[in-house]
């Protein structure tokens, strides 16, 4: 089976399904400034409650998540907005993102002298990035450039994930999985041979892999996007509602028809059917979404961002 895809080729060799400019606050305290910049420039931003009062391995864990958002192949350029005194130092994060080869601008509230000045500087930064980013065009890409991110949390979801892994494998595409389900169900099928990826590391191209310490619920979206997935497939079991994500389109599949019907505007597919059939229809939708078809999460402008953490704030 051959697939034809076109995406945005990034400096690190990965392919984007979208060409976003991301406005990323390094700490909760610069979240409003980031929100204002994104509103004024029609770019995407994430809202989060992290970045300060953090200790131990949790600091690097969070910084890797932020780095992963900023360098996700759907992102053509990033503006980091810092407060200045925070634990996750915005400048250090920005330098790390730039070293990866990402187009990067930095602004800070304390550096600029207040929220308004930081917002002005951020808008100018977006304009400067946009001159370059808007030159990016979709180009034909190999199937191995596609990396789908799948999260599931129940047995039915795992079965769909197994079927998706088979389809992705035969197409030569990659799939990265985050799962809060029971590991024993992976003892057979394509997932049993999956490679493991550390949180924040890039998943291998053209292979099936599982991201470690992915968290639970929609925290898994961050883990999958940090691994480089361009399109997320959320298999929402146990009546869980659909949650969107700013950086990647999310194909939300309901685990049961009742939940699907009740929240039909926010779901993309009813995933309650036979796993192989659901996997096939989700896969077909993924190819369309990669090429530009909007998901329900994109239509409603969802920018949910739930970060899994290793330690409490101090």
């Amino acid at each position: 089976m051959s697939i034809e895809l076109a995406g945005y080729l990034r400096a690190d060799g990965r392919w984007g399904a979208r060409n976003h400019i991301l406005v990323l606050p390094s700490v909760v305290c610069s979240g409003l400034a980031a929100e204002r910049i994104a509103q004024m420039t029609d770019t995407i931003h994430v809202v989060h409650q992290h970045g300060c009062g953090q200790v131990g391995d949790d600091v690097e864990h969070t910084e890797r998540a932020f780095f992963g958002m900023a360098t996700n192949p759907n992102v053509g350029g990033t503006v980091v907005v810092s407060l200045g005194c925070e634990t996750i130092q915005g400048k250090r994060l920005a330098d790390r993102i730039a070293r990866h080869g990402q187009r990067l601008k930095f602004t800070g509230i304390q550096l600029s002298g207040g929220t308004d000045k930081a917002v002005d500087a951020g808008c100018e930064a977006v304009a400067a990035l946009n001159v370059v980013v808007e030159q990016d065009t979709r180009r034909p890409m190999p199937p191995s450039g596609l990396l789908i991110g799948v999260d599931c949390d129940d047995e039915h979801g795992v079965q769909i994930a197994q079927a998706l892994a088979s389809i992705a494998e035969s197409a030569g595409a990659g799939m990265v999985l985050a799962a809060a389900g029971d590991k024993p169900t992976w003892s057979s099928g394509p997932l049993a041979q999956a490679a493991t990826v550390a949180y924040g590391d890039s998943a291998p191209a053209g292979r099936i892999s599982i991201v470690e310490e992915a968290g639970r619920g929609s925290e898994q979206h961050v883990a999958l996007a940090a691994a480089g997935a361009q399109v997320l497939i959320a298999l929402r079991g146990r009546g869980r509602p659909p949650v969107g994500f700013a950086i990647c389109p999310v194909i939300a599949a309901a685990g049961d028809t009742r939940t699907y019907t009740a929240l039909v505007d926010d779901f993309d597919v009813d995933g309650s059917g036979e796993p192989d059939t659901v996997a096939r229809s989700v896969w077909n939708r993924t190819l369309e979404v990669f090429g530009g078809r909007e998901t329900a999460s994109e239509r409603r402008g969802a920018r949910d961002f739930s970060l899994g953490r290793l330690a409490r704030n101090m």
């Binding site: 200790v55 131990g56 304390q110 101090m314």
Partner: peptide, 12 residues
């Protein structure tokens, strides 16, 4: 088992 410095006092 962590060092609170970095969180308290913070870099700033």
């Amino acid at each position: 088992g962590v060092d609170i410095r970095g969180a308290q006092p913070a870099p700033g």
